[in-house]
């Protein structure tokens, strides 16, 4: 006896299948962007062109630097380095312009971690406070240890170091070791690194409160309370109910899965101010 081949016939099934494809498309696009950026870093290391890494990036005369790195270095060395501080400010500015795009689209931690079945589904309640404390804590730790401690273990940093080692002919073992350490930390604490633990993500979400661009918003006319977006959002956010979307890392997952196409992408969302004044 042959089992009947399952075919997609009804309209609902077709919609579900296409949604799944869109979700996959965005997920792949994110991983590919991040891997391309790392490959570019390795390539510049092999060709000896100045580009930099996620910690410090030089695009021609403009220098970007990771704001958390700048804060740690200044706290650790107790010296104010004007050029570096300016680079950090430009980094902050890019966060205000782009929000947590770095987390979603560039940081390799996004697709390397957060994938165990052991993780709790939901973030902590006062996560804003917790993340702020984490970001402040690593700066304090840097000052205490006189070393930018988080820069040593930062997943973005260690993977960039791996990329440089791959390009310039060094050893990949330290990178693998640190990554293993972070994954075990994640496993022991049963938390998702990017959502609950990463001090860098915490610092970026604090700043991205000010970000008025690239926002996702539920259209109240189409949205009916359901949990489709909450289930896919890596941050556990329900876009229909969310009041504070600063942790959004622009991954397009909610838009891809919404069964009513209620999630709207607003490249420029200056409505924030009106919302505040009406509030």
């Amino acid at each position: 006896m042959e089992t009947p081949v399952e075919t997609i016939t009804t309209r609902a099934q077709r919609v579900v299948a296409s949604k799944r494809l869109t979700k996959k498309f965005w997920a792949r696009a994110r991983v590919i962007t991040s891997v391309t950026a790392l490959a570019l870093i390795a390539l510049t290391a092999a060709l000896k062109v100045e580009l930099g890494t996620f910690s410090s990036l030089a695009l021609g005369p403009i220098q970007f630097a990771c704001p958390l790195g700048v804060a740690q270095v200044i706290a650790a060395s107790q010296q104010f380095i004007p050029a570096f501080a300016l680079a950090g400010l430009i980094g902050l500015l890019s966060i205000i312009l782009l929000g947590r795009v770095f987390c979603g689209w560039l940081c390799p931690g996004r697709w390397m971690f957060n994938r165990g079945p052991w993780q709790e589904k939901m973030p902590f309640k006062h996560r804003g406070w917790i993340q702020g404390a984490l970001a402040g804590g690593v700066v304090g730790l840097a000052a205490v240890c006189h070393t930018p401690v988080f820069c040593i273990v930062c997943p973005a940093g260690i993977v960039c170091r791996g990329a440089i080692a791959a390009g310039a002919g060094g050893s990949l073992l330290p990178t693998l070791g640190w990554l293993g350490g972070i994954i075990s930390f994640e496993w022991l604490s049963r938390r998702s690194w990017c959502r609950d633990l990463c001090p860098l993500g915490g610092a970026i979400s604090l700043v991205s409160r000010l970000n008025p661009f690239l926002k996702f918003k539920a259209n109240p006319e189409k949205c009916r309370p359901c949990k489709a977006c909450e289930n896919v959002c890596p941050e556990g956010m329900n876009i229909g109910r969310a009041v504070d979307t600063s942790v959004c890392m622009k991954c397009f997952a909610c838009q891809a899965v919404c069964p009513r196409d209620a999630v709207e992408f607003q490249p420029v969302a200056f409505k924030i101010t009106t919302a505040k004044s009406s509030h």
């Binding site: 000896k48 100045e50 580009l51 890494t53 910690s55 740690q72 270095v73 060395s77 010296q79 940093g157």
Partner: peptide, 11 residues
């Protein structure tokens, strides 16, 4: 304390 471990010098 001052080195950010960015690796630009190595690259």
């Amino acid at each position: 304390a001052q080195c950010q471990r960015c690796g630009k010098c190595v690259a």
